[in-house]
């Protein structure tokens, strides 16, 4: 990436990132995320009752937390710009489409990264209570962050499709849900009736949940990392195409 294109991305990144904290969005999101993560871990996940020094009940619920919280962050990425008309201003700035898409995405991803990082007291707690496998916990954090990025990239694309944030939110939740459960009968049965087994297998390989579970075991497999990065790249490219298509609308 050349210096100037990096500067463009950075400018969008800074502006977007600051905008989260200029409004209550950031604080509401972070507080709710931390609260829900805590409730899921300690009550539903039965962190204490299990009597095991690991963060399985904590990370186990991340995909489901993200399913509703990440689309809420992603829905405003482009539809708000389009509704208020500022998208025209943004796209007439000396920026390429890529810089705008990437800058916005990275800002939102960094924001979710901060929310995730603020769950560190759970890590400290489990280390205080026992001797957990910290390598596994680190892998879980990495997997969780990558998965959040993939959710966000889907949200970015679908937010570009509509000027209505509620529509963007609902579409994102549905598509993310399908990607989460791609490896499960709920989704596969829809294809297995007519599609060849190879295609069904290919679809089942797209499951976020399976790739996350693989990383969360504590093994960083290049295939899982490549999968999430490719998913992010694909959906961001799709965002750029959609924005370009709907420029005139």
């Amino acid at each position: 990436m050349s210096g100037s294109s990096f500067n463009g991305t950075l400018a969008v990144f800074k502006r977007e990132f600051a905008s989260y904290f200029a409004t209550p969005v950031a604080y509401v999101f972070i507080v709710i995320f931390l609260l829900l993560a805590g409730v899921f871990t300690f009550y539903i996940g039965q962190f204490y009752e299990r009597g095991q020094a690991d963060l399985f009940p904590f990370f186990n619920f991340h995909p489901w937390l993200y399913l509703f919280l990440v689309p809420a962050v992603a829905m405003r990425l482009w539809s708000e710009e389009r509704k208020s008309g500022t998208i025209e201003l943004l796209l007439t700035l000396p920026l390429t489409m890529w810089q705008a898409v990437l800058g916005k995405f990275l800002a939102a991803w960094a924001f979710i990264g901060i929310a995730l990082a603020l769950t560190f007291p759970v890590w400290i707690t489990v280390n205080y209570l026992g001797a957990p496998d910290n390598g596994v916990i680190f892998a879980c954090y990495l997997g969780s962050f990558l998965m959040a990025g993939a959710f966000l990239a889907i949200g970015s694309c679908l937010s570009a499709c509509t000027r209505n944030q509620v529509v963007a939110f609902i579409l994102t939740v549905v598509v993310c849900f399908l990607f989460l459960l791609a490896g499960f009968p709920l989704v596969l049965n829809f294809f297995s009736a007519w599609a060849p087994q190879e295609l069904v297998d290919a679809i089942s390989g797209l499951s976020f949940l399976q790739h996350f579970a693989a990383i969360a075991k504590g093994v960083i497999d290049m295939r899982d990392i490549v999968y999430f990065l490719l998913a992010i790249a694909f959906w961001l490219y799709a965002s750029a195409v959609v924005i370009d298509l709907k420029k005139a609308d």
Binding site: D133, G205, L206, I220, D221, M222, Y237
Partner: peptide, 29 residues
Amino acid sequence: LAVLFVAVILISNTLLRGARVDLTQNHLY
């Protein structure tokens, strides 16, 4: 691109076999 995306993932599934870092304390895997 969508087709390419699935294809690249399928290819990387075979090409990157075994490229992994085991972060578990006792190297369980």
